[in-house]
Write a protein that binds this DNA or RNA. Sequence first.
DNA 1: TGCTGATAGTATGTATGCTGAATAAAAATA
DNA 2: TATTTTTATTCAGCATACATACTATCAGCA
Lengths: 173, 173
Amino acid sequence: MPNKPSIEGRTKGVEALYEKPGHLVRRANQISMAIFAKECSELDLTSVQYAALTAICDCDGIDATRLSGLIALDRATIGGVMDRLETKGWVHRKPSQSDRRIKALHISASGKALLEAAGPKVDEVQKRLLAPLSPDEQQTFLQLLTKLVLLGNENSRAPQKELDAQPLKEDAA
Amino acid sequence: MPNKPSIEGRTKGVEALYEKPGHLVRRANQISMAIFAKECSELDLTSVQYAALTAICDCDGIDATRLSGLIALDRATIGGVMDRLETKGWVHRKPSQSDRRIKALHISASGKALLEAAGPKVDEVQKRLLAPLSPDEQQTFLQLLTKLVLLGNENSRAPQKELDAQPLKEDAA
DNA sequence: TGCTGATAGTATGTATGCTGAATAAAAATA
DNA sequence: TATTTTTATTCAGCATACATACTATCAGCA
């Protein structure tokens, strides 16, 4: 992607930007989100919403704080995401009996149906995102990216956390 | 990151998420931005603002639409970014004489000073982001990430574009 | 010259993503 | 038991990010 000779000297600083990992990661995320949006627009579903729904489906009755750790979504952001999922009827919140601070999260039938419909499309997103790389390169890339994310986990405000206990039976299903 | 045996079956769907490139790329960007924020918070500078300033410094008199292509920043987002840069006194906008639709962008002295102060910190961000990988791995990772971003470029709404002409001399410095 | 299509900038509305603070309830402890 | 600390949620506010639409202007062309 060379610029024309006439501006070569002047764009040096910008081209330094193109090599910076931070910039490249931002671009990759931009591309990933764009592909997701195209693929799932008719479902009215974002990638964050898909992640949240997947987690709630798996961990029925989970609370927002633990969900936040599971999918590495900022705690303060989750409220709005849940509002939208609830508006679309895919999730409902039920106050916990044992801890009145908690609102247990449950997926609805339509939420499950949506998850199933989205599954193949989400897989297609991953395929298209990695398409520029050969199968070998894809494997290497994923391995390195996983390492980077795992070991860099604590640097983000919303580090991924494993579930240290299952939700109370009372809040499940 | 195994979960306790008791919930192993239930979290299977969530763990599938952890292997998805889209999720990993989102996490990597999250981590990258967090490191940048920590490193540059005392400068009151975000990574997007740094990218924009770098480009404006290099291409004095550039207009917002071309800047958008240079750093792959959504056209509709640039207005707000420029507002904030102008408020902080790092950039000023000057109406073009030859095309009254255009507002040429210029970096100020304090903007240049800030860029110089930020330079080492931004380099440190890149180092910390890649720190989980060995030198060899870092090189491989950057190479694959660059390939992915270059070839996936057209998938995003704000694809990176090279400058096809320099700004009119009239609008420069 | 007058019309038409393309372009630059802006505005509106939605969705993350984060900081910091406020509130309420539970847990720990003196 | 009373006090302190921790925890769960929410809210206000700022900064991207994107879709869509609107205005002003420019450029090409009949």
